[in-house]
Simulated assay, not measured.
Amino acid sequence: MSKRFSIGLVVGKFAPLHLGHEWLIRQAQEQCEQLVLLSWVCPELAGYEPERRANWLQVRFPELRSWVVTPEWVARQRARGLLLPDLPHESAADAAQRQFVADFCLAVLGHPVDAVFTSEAYGDGFAAHLTRCFGRPVQHVEIDRARIQVPVSGTRLRADIHGLRHYLAAQVYGDFVERIALLGGESSGKSSLAQALAEALGTRHAAEYGRELWEEQGGVLAYDDLLRIGRTQVAREQALAGQCQRYLVCDTTPLTTLFYCRELFGRAEAELEQLAERRYQHLFLCADDFPFVQDGTRQGEAFRRRQNRWYEQELDRRGWAFTCLSGSLLQRVEQVLRHLSG
């Protein structure tokens, strides 16, 4: 059964891409053989950078063609000979915004569109402008302008992204979750602290995959296992982030995996070295004043001290700020909470 339109268009900031946008896009998909998504924000909004918006569209709508355009992108297209005007500023007149879309369609898509889908009052004027530019009718299809289906806006979300997270897909909200990373030598209480912090913050924690694999394989790790550990730890964080509330507590980071890889094998894959550069919003190093517990798998207190010194050196070398935690488990939890509220 043929659909109502051949080619449709949805234009938006998608800053962030929320479930209201998704509802609009899904409704448009049902009516179009092809649907194109176009996004720009000028000037850009901190935290909603083009790369993030492009990733959200790709993850949520991989079957659709989507463009997130920037002044740099426009310059590259001009260098290729495409006729595009400057990317309109947020304060530019409606006519300039609409003309950019018309020129984009003709220069980049190579053809007009048949319909534009919006939840906004400007939709009729937008379609009329495109009709004049294309010399053929462009219809405006209005979807849930009253925001009954999904009662939220990008402006509201930007003001309270965590309080309104239920209006975001997990893959989108996960990008706003702050990662709390715990580092420390063996028997420094990281795992207990990760669980206690997650409980205190009402959120989730990413357990240490390397320890799980080590136990699963009877205490034997091959060289290739270390890169696998680094990849899996990052994937675990990414999978959990969208299920969290503001924070994700990470029992370890790929920096720990790098330490063990060098320690066990004297070298590391370039990809693991790169994974070890992964940034975390909050870094904590557990002091080795915690009583050492030998569970039959650990190397000893001297090794723990050397490991902690390595962390300090590596963090300093990278210029990464970190907070040292000391004392009992309760005291360490309190120190983290004070840091987060400061």
Rank of each mutant, 00 (worst) to 15 (best):
L227D: 04
H18T: 02
E49V: 10
V108K: 12
G20Y: 14
G154A: 08
R305I: 07
D289V: 02
L82F: 15
A146I: 01
L24T: 01
V333S: 06
P291G: 01
W214N: 09
T203D: 01
D114V: 00
S153V: 04
L87K: 05
T256K: 14
E51I: 09
Q34D: 04
V293D: 00
Q99A: 07
F176R: 05
H129F: 13
V11I: 01
A115E: 02
Y48K: 12
V10Q: 03
G174R: 05
L340K: 07
E312F: 10
Q331D: 11
Q99M: 03
L38Y: 08
S341Y: 10
E178N: 08
V59G: 02
R4T: 02
T155G: 04
F14G: 04
E33Y: 13
R4V: 04
L258Y: 07
E314Y: 11
H140F: 07
F14Q: 04
T257D: 06
L330Y: 14
N308G: 02
Y280R: 14
L168I: 05
G327Y: 08
V141I: 02
S91E: 14
K190R: 09
L197A: 02
C324S: 13
C261R: 05
T232F: 11
Q307N: 10
A268V: 11
T297R: 15
L35W: 06
S2W: 11
L168M: 04
A196I: 07
V293N: 05
V69P: 15
A75S: 14
G47F: 10
E199D: 04
L45G: 05
R305G: 01
Y167V: 00
Y260G: 10
D289I: 01
R147G: 09
V138K: 05
E212L: 06
L258C: 06
G189Y: 04
W73G: 13
V36H: 12
Q313D: 15
Y260N: 10
E271R: 14
A95I: 15
E178V: 00
E237F: 15
F290R: 03
A46F: 13
L285S: 14
L182H: 07
I180V: 15
T256S: 12
A276E: 08
Q27P: 01
K13H: 09
Y280E: 05
D316E: 12
C32D: 00
P62T: 03
Y122P: 00
A93H: 15
L283W: 15
Y223Q: 15
A270I: 01
L37S: 01
Y122Q: 02
I161H: 08
I229M: 12
L35I: 01
H21S: 06
R145A: 04
Q217T: 00
Q243H: 14
H140R: 10
S119N: 04
V333I: 06
Q243I: 02
R165A: 10
